[in-house]
């Protein structure tokens, strides 16, 4: 559900910019914050707030990779696999996380807790390999640090230790 406050924020944004249309990206961010991904309702709400067609909004939402087209895990892990991290063996890190979470890159755990994704250069090149969890950076990663991170996240999510 897109809350009335969220819709109001979208409308406010539309008047904050010199041209209402500029508010489409921040409004999509708001819609995604409300529902975890861009739903049909989210599209509709953004379209109404800014006076665009839903097709128009869909076109923008699918151009930018941060607007998810389907539901995601509670913790979205983005491991950078671009050149600087590649040179620092990020591929091993991804494989390690795949094993630890028992999913392949691009997938979400069946309990809906984690999504594991590879990402393009996240501007942490000189602290490679690096990853982000819900936007927060974890740099100079090792397999051990990755394990510790997942442990901490498991705890936060109240997940029993896996065997």
């Amino acid at each position: 559900m897109i809350s009335e406050q969220a819709k109001q924020r979208m409308r406010d944004l539309a008047s904050r910019y010199p041209v209402a249309r500029s508010a489409v990206m921040p409004s999509l961010h708001i819609a995604q914050l409300e529902e975890g991904y861009i739903t049909a309702e989210g599209l509709q709400a953004v379209a109404e707030a800014i006076n665009l067609t839903i097709d128009d909004v869909e076109s923008i939402a699918t151009f930018y990779t941060m607007y998810y087209q389907r539901p995601q895990g509670k913790k979205i892990i983005h491991v950078c696999t671009s050149i600087s991290c590649y040179l620092r063996n990020c591929d091993a890190l991804v494989e390690h996380l795949e094993q630890r979470l028992q999913i392949k890159r691009g997938e979400t755990t069946p309990d809906g807790n984690y999504s594991l994704k590879t990402a393009e250069c996240i501007a942490a090149c000189s602290s490679a390999p690096a990853l982000q969890v819900n936007g927060e950076f974890y740099e100079h990663m090792t397999n051990e640090r990755a394990d510790a991170l997942i442990d901490a996240l498991d705890q936060e999510l109240g997940i029993e230790r896996r065997v």
């Binding site: 067609t53 128009d56 699918t62 151009f63």
Partner: peptide, 8 residues
């Protein structure tokens, strides 16, 4: 704005 480009 009915027919649009999707994805990139």
């Amino acid at each position: 704005n009915g027919l649009v480009m999707i994805s990139r």
